[in-house]
Design a protein around this nucleic acid. Structure first.
Length: 917
RNA sequence: GCUCGGAUGGUGGAAUGGUAGACACGCAAGACUUAAAAUCUUGUGACCAUAACGGUUGUGCGGGUUCAAGUCCCGCUCCGAGUACCA
């Protein structure tokens, strides 16, 4: 009987679906294990062979854990809101809901062919009203919460209203946009509207005027992680800075906890480092400066020790201080400068590093010496970081140095022996000079000493500053979650929770209105029953993906995002697999979102993802043919140097092991119908290169094709065999035959000719050894995510069993169970062939027995002065004396000893003997 | 610039400080076959050498620690990824 993978895979996929083999419920008696994939955005292009890499790895792990007796939650869903569907809708007029639905259907077909063990009853889609009801609900809760810095926790805003009316803002340490001071009497005297304005300053979801990344081509704002090098990640359009009133989430309030939480999770060092950099904690001081006109402002510095080297001050052009400080004489020059820098896009600003700036006309007093310091305005200072103002120390900061040089401002060195004739001395080392009471201290001593002095004299205070910004949460787009917000007298109010979900309305076009409002401005009856207008913005892509892991625990619950009971059983994700591209976006937002839900008592774990593995990217491997210039003749790779040729991309699906299918090539394109070939050894050999997997390179490989030709089990094994999971590597179909051959070999252990040929004799010791070696290796490999080496272990075992013609039932039975996570279809088929009634998914993972792995004899490598020379076998329990004597007496040793007596003989049991002469 | 990875045969890749190159692809030879495909067997880092044995060398480069280094330490080179006027 042949290994008919197509028929086998169809049959068992049907069986699993019919029997709901992968359905899970909370079983209190069993230990839980939660394995999650980053759910995909269903794009129109469908899956290519790189997408399932992580899904296969997580599926292997899930199946393995299930065989080990865990109750495994392994769900899948779709991140269905997003820009591409909407861009497509704008171009074609097709409703994004329709194309998204089509894409999901296609994804599901492709996923189903690979044989994943998902519990599809738990599927979620972010664009489903039953799902986004809870996205909206969480937003309302954020709107109704503030963040208390003392407690490091989110609290209900009603509590804050109570406190304000009792004691005003006195003694509170709250996360806010700008510090406010008022008494209880003042608060109580305020109008409803005035109070609302103040509360907005403290809400976790707030409406704020902020500098945003505005992308004119997409017609929307973007979050920082959606922009790279001044271009939008989606589409690559230029992005500019613009001040707009937008919904924001106070992610920055959680910065300390987001940083500390990294200590608790098992993520790779590089990913943790990326998050640490993104959060960007820096210790320093805020210092007050006052101008000669009496205006005072704050700066942030990490180098308080350099206070005596300050020779000027710089403000960001966007800073509110610019307006207040500019003197009448300088007003025109400053206006002109701001107009010039304001029109630059983010990208132009990054590209243009030339030194520019303008003098404001004002002077600040040095806090220690009282010396006047000119205040400049320059775009090298960013409005969004610190206070948007700096003290410039040109001797010890390269940017200040460049500025000082350009505008001929004084430079005062502060560190003994430093050379600042060509560049600044930025290193935090050396001994202080020219610094009054800091003289003689090292930089490391001077920093705290300077801050102490600043605090003592009331000139400032210690401050830990974070780079992490609040997340801008509005998008001027159609295809996203509507905000559960309406406006009354210009102030936003939340809809009552009973009215959720607020469903996305229909619009006639997916474009902004004529008056420049977002697409929802086109919706009819877009107001509350009382007639108050509803919010026109929608939420960004990360809104729906921030808490989806919780929803899988209880996906059909209409009363809560997740029930306490489901949440306390599944708790959080034990293993999360996905790409590194989400390191600073999704993985920050979802941690923030989860911490908020933790604070309000919805999530029972503070960190959502316990262990995280980043699978590498699968790149494309392009193939080339070489056309002789000016002809329709193509020359094989190794003969191309004899001609003048142009390399042409050729569809990799017409190439096998780098050999071109000539017939397919001729039919590929009418232009090649009459192509002639110069062959080598009767074959046309193609060249190759590693490139991005894309249609234009003709190197996209569809998993469906591989499944059709080799079967899903081969695809699964081969994706793992390709190399270490976390490493990026090109997809190279060369070599897939080896993995497929292995499965045939396993099949042939069971079937000989047309019949099942298994026996019930006692297995031989060799066979047991081969099996137990496999069990041990595969068990530890899976635990370490080393799937490529476990595939090798299977091949070795199959080769050994084939060689010794082992057809023993018990040995093959254990082999099949071990294989089940990797190649579930063939395992299920063979498992039933062995006479089992239930699914192999419900078998028990075999334990290995060290007894079978014991060797009678070990080969010892015999080395002389570290160079290994020959091998002798010794009994496993041979004593050191016996070994030493036998080695020295061995005829082979004479040659290397040359009559000398060895100084030392080092014996590593069961490994090596080194004779030092 | 900073941070983090990486560099091993023709290729993908294995190696708790202990026989480097497992396993697989490819290639070569052989078996089967009218033939091809498929399958099976054997060989396969490089160099030297032989009837046979054997030897030398070898994990990006230069040093070091060790009886012993792909692996640990110091200094480079190159490649990849992330991030960037963050005060």
């Amino acid at each position: 009987m042949d290994y008919n993978f197509g028929e086998i895979e169809r049959r068992w996929q049907q069986y699993w679906a019919d029997h709901k083999t992968y359905r899970v419920t909370e079983e209190k008696a069993k230990p839980k294990f939660y394995v999650l994939d980053m759910f995909p955005y269903p794009s129109g292009a469908g899956l290519h062979v790189g997408h399932p890499l992580g899904y296969i790895a997580s599926d292997i792990f899930s199946r393995f854990k299930r065989l080990q007796g865990f109750n495994v939650l392994h769900p899948m869903g779709y991140d269905a809101y997003g820009l591409p569907a909407e861009q497509y809708a704008i171009q074609t007029g097709q409703h994004p809901a329709v194309t998204t639905e089509q894409n999901i259907t296609r994804y599901r077909e492709q996923l189903d062919k690979i044989g994943f063990s998902y519990d599809w009853d738990r599927e979620v889609r972010t664009c489903d009203p039953a799902y986004y009801k809870w996205t909206q609900w969480a937003f309302i809760r954020m709107f109704q919460s503030y963040y208390c810095n003392q407690a490091q926790q989110a609290r209900p805003i009603a509590e804050l209203v109570e406190v304000f009316s009792q004691q005003g803002s006195e003694g509170l340490d709250l996360a806010c946009n700008e510090p406010m001071r008022f008494t209880a009497t003042e608060w109580n005297a305020m109008s409803e509207r005035e109070q609302q304005v103040i509360l907005m300053n403290y809400r976790i979801a707030y409406l704020g005027d902020t500098m945003v990344n505005w992308c004119p081509q997409l017609g929307t704002v973007l979050a920082n992680d959606e922009v790279s090098e001044g271009l939008s990640i989606r589409g690559g359009y230029p992005v500019e800075q613009k001040k707009m009133r937008q919904w924001c989430l106070r992610v920055s309030a959680y910065a300390p906890r987001l940083l500390e939480g990294l200590e608790q999770v098992a993520w790779s060092d590089s990913l943790k480092e990326t998050q640490r950099n993104w959060i960007g904690r820096s210790e320093g001081a805020v210092m007050h400066f006052s101008t000669t006109e009496g205006v005072s402002f704050d700066i942030f510095t990490t180098r308080a020790d350099t206070i005596f080297g300050v020779t000027f001050m710089v403000l960001a052009p966007e800073s509110e201080l610019v307006e207040q400080l500019t003197t009448p004489e300088q007003r025109d020059a400053v206006k002109q400068y701001i107009r010039k820098t304001g029109t630059k896009t983010e990208r132009e600003r990054i590209a243009d590093r030339s030194v520019t700036g303008v003098f404001s006309g004002a002077y600040a007093a040095h806090p220690f010496t009282g010396e006047p310091l000119p205040i400049w305005i320059s775009d090298y200072v960013l409005a969004g970081y610190g206070t948007g103002a700096i003290m410039a120390v040109p001797a010890h900061d390269s940017r200040d140095y460049a500025f000082a040089r350009h505008f001929s401002l004084p430079i005062v060195p502060l560190i003994e022996g430093c050379d600042i004739s060509e560049e600044s001395f930025d290193a935090k080392e050396g001994v202080m000079i020219n610094s009054d009471f800091l003289n003689g201290l090292t930089v490391k001593e001077a920093i705290p000493a300077a801050i102490d002095a600043v605090e003592r004299r009331g000139l400032g205070y210690r401050k830990i500053n974070y780079r992490l910004r609040d997340a801008i949460f509005s998008r001027q787009r159609y295809w996203g979650e509507p905000f559960p917000i309406y406006y009354k007298e210009g102030m936003p109010y939340t809809l009552p929770e009973e009215q959720l979900p607020l469903e996305l309305p229909e619009v006639d076009k997916f474009l902004p209105t004529e008056t420049g409002e977002p697409p929802l401005g086109r919706a009819k009856n877009w107001h509350t029953e009382e007639g108050y207008p509803l919010e026109l913005n929608t939420m960004p892509g990360f809104a729906g993906s921030s808490a989806y892991y919780l929803r899988y625990m209880d996906p059909h619950n209409d009363e809560a995002l997740v029930s306490a009971q489901a949440n306390s059983y599944w708790r959080n994700v034990d293993l999360y697999i996905g790409g590194t591209e989400h390191a600073t976006g999704h993985l920050v937002y979802s941690r923030f979102w989860n911490k908020f839900l933790f604070d309000i008592g919805v999530a029972c774990e503070e960190e959502p993802f316990r262990k995280l593995v980043n699978q590498g990217m699968i790149q494309g491997r392009s193939n080339f043919v070489y056309r002789i210039k000016g002809s329709n003749r193509f020359v094989s790779l190794n003969l191309k140097d004899e001609h003048e040729v142009t390399p042409i991309h050729v569809d990799v699906n017409m190439v096998h092991n780098d050999i071109l299918d000539l017939e397919a090539f001729r039919n590929w394109n009418p232009e090649y119908k009459t192509a002639e070939f110069i062959l080598e050894d009767g074959k046309y050999i193609c060249g190759w290169a590693v490139e991005k997997m894309s249609k234009s390179m003709f190197n996209v490989v569809n998993p469906d094709d591989i499944v059709g030709r080799y079967g899903a089990d081969t695809l699964r094994l081969y994706e793992m065999f390709l190399g270490p999971l976390e490493q990026s590597k090109p997809w190279d179909t060369n070599g897939i035959d080896g993995v497929h051959r292995f499965l045939r070999k396993v099949w042939n252990l069971f079937y000989q000719e047309e019949t099942l040929a298994i026996t019930d004799e006692e297995p031989s010791r060799e066979a047991l050894k081969a099996l137990h070696k496999l069990i041990k290796k595969v068990t530890s490999d899976i635990e370490q995510f080393s799937f490529n080496t476990s595939v090798s272990a299977f091949m070795i075992c199959a080769n050994e069993l084939t060689a010794m013609k082992c057809r023993n039932r018990s040995v093959l039975s254990d082999l099949v169970v071990c294989l089940a996570p990797f190649a579930p279809h063939i395992a299920e088929e063979l498992w039933h062939a062995l006479g089992n009634e239930s699914s192999v998914c419900d078998a028990a993972w075999p334990a290995w027995n060290e007894e079978y792995l014991k060797e009678d004899a070990f080969p010892y490598a015999i080395s002389f002065n570290g160079k290994s020379r020959f091998v002798i076998e010794f009994a496993a329990d041979a004593s050191r004396e016996e070994i030493e004597q036998a080695v020295l007496a061995h005829p082979g040793s004479q040659k290397w000893l040359e009559g000398k007596t060895p100084k030392k003989v080092i014996i590593v049991p069961n490994k090596i003997v080194n004779v030092v002469i």
